[in-house]
Design a protein around this nucleic acid. Sequence first.
DNA 1: TTTATTACCGAAACCGGTTTCGTAAATTAT
DNA 2: ATAATTTACGAAACCGGTTTCGGTAATAAA
Lengths: 339, 339
Amino acid sequence: MSKTTLNKISEILGISKSTASKALNNYADVSPKTKAMVLNLAKELDYTPNSFAQNLRSQESKIIGLIVPEIVHYFFSNIILGVINAASKCGYAVVVVQSNDDYEYEVKQLDALLQKNVDGVLLSFADNTNNFKHVKSLLSNNVPLVLYDKISKLIDCNKVVIDDIKAAQMATQHLIDIGCKKIAIVRNKLKSQTTIDRYKGYKKALLLNDIEYDKLLDIETEDVSLESGKKAALTIFENHKEVDAVFAVTDLLAIGVLETFKENNVQVPEQISIIGFSNWLLTQITTPHLSTIDQPGQQMGKVAFDLLYSEIINNKNNVKEPYKTVVIDTKVISRESTK
Amino acid sequence: MSKTTLNKISEILGISKSTASKALNNYADVSPKTKAMVLNLAKELDYTPNSFAQNLRSQESKIIGLIVPEIVHYFFSNIILGVINAASKCGYAVVVVQSNDDYEYEVKQLDALLQKNVDGVLLSFADNTNNFKHVKSLLSNNVPLVLYDKISKLIDCNKVVIDDIKAAQMATQHLIDIGCKKIAIVRNKLKSQTTIDRYKGYKKALLLNDIEYDKLLDIETEDVSLESGKKAALTIFENHKEVDAVFAVTDLLAIGVLETFKENNVQVPEQISIIGFSNWLLTQITTPHLSTIDQPGQQMGKVAFDLLYSEIINNKNNVKEPYKTVVIDTKVISRESTK
DNA sequence: TTTATTACCGAAACCGGTTTCGTAAATTAT
DNA sequence: ATAATTTACGAAACCGGTTTCGGTAATAAA
């Protein structure tokens, strides 16, 4: 049994394809009788319009592309969920791809999305992306784009971010508020905007509290892995016994730091306080529970989709709205690792 | 500047659309000169075929649907990654949706996928799915389907699973091997196949080692959350001091159990050993590190896609292969929580 | 009764490719 | 030289909807 098409329906009823289509789409110029006839038969034959044909006609796929640096990642999982839920409510499906935090891959995956004719793209840059040809060509091709989380100020489009400077400043201030004086920062050396901003926030907090920035307490790591956190902690443990607090720019780094201190019998938080960044599920499970910055992924995903959606709608209606940058609120989650 | 189409190319070159199409698709009946001409112009105008038209013609979308019970979940994140990587290599995009571990939602999301005309579906059932009308209608509509992880034996299709019985048996045997005698099981009461099988494996191991199954040590929880694990541990702690080991059917449950024991000054593993299930990243971060069963999500995702892909290809060529059930190997990861 | 409206329907164009089939020209075989 | 192939190309159908536009018949207004 082949799929039922409009042609089949119109043939059976002895009417034209046009009328059948109109009946299904609530056009005014269809008599009640005819409409009922069509609707009944459509239901009986379990008719669903062929979306390929609809897509070709409307030139839209009702699918959007979502590029995340890493899929197996608590924060980005929440992004994905937020996007998918919001999209689903508007009848959009989401194709998810991963850039592997690599520029080349990001370009490739973006191309793949465009070949599928997605109606818009949500993108968080790879750590090593500092060339923006690919997104600029997107924009010149009039494909709606929303950048989220790891963005670039050089691109003129809708964005949704957290205020990394402010959040990092709050994290550092929290450490200062509980009495810490020698605060180390552990950050990855790749210069993504988020890393840079968290670094700025750290320095800003020091400055505002008349604490001198000490280059030796500024530990750069290869990446943001658990292992890198451990290495960083070892550096601190071996060379800087005076340190009484660590701000790590990601939770995983923070956990690596925490683990290593524990292994070396450094009491957390009695001897040293630790705060991370993102509020991964992980942080509620460490011993002691890790203080961190809440970075609401689901909400960011939802907002990102909403921005994209309104841009898609505006495009259809040929209206041009100025681009927005939505800043999502973060807050300090104070747990046992900072006291 | 509008998008370049085949029509535009053929008009510019003064040839027919057919010939232009053939040139681009390596047909034999195009002269070398004409072919070069078309290819050059296509490159110059940055021509990419309109996939809507291709889809309509070929009646395939080169998109597959992936339904996961929960997106923010270490195991399923790995599934998603495995699927996406494998799919991408074959030119397929993946639309990801979440069933929320709820049957109604699962049906709804499946419908949404079908409306997008996906070429196939990968599905892991919600915990409360025990009605299979939706997937049966899929199969009768000849839409390729592969079930993974949470499957049903009642459905005749390709599947990829781990041997939950064997894995749970291995976990329990591991506890026995290290000398435990009173082994409790913590499992969610919803009767998904995986839960049932892990329960079976637990009992099988007891049986093979002449340990009597004790209904009182069989703790049923509402769900598989951290909280449920904590509640279960409290039950054990308050009523069954004799228990010297706990097998929890998920890592999160196990971590809840672990946390609660620690809070009540029960030494792990000295007084009680704990083993979980799945090998989440979390398990490497708890104190003590949690023993568990490795459940290789990425590999399962890859295998699931490969099965789906070959079914899609077979369908196109009108060949019918018998359905397979691929069983992925698991192994015990012995860490500090079992000694 | 004549004219103006309204209600209802269908032919056909359109979206942009792919593929079949017929045919004229060029080449080879006889 | 003619006949048989081969080469190269294009017209047109096709995929399955949506939408415009024109026209007839029924109704309302003059």
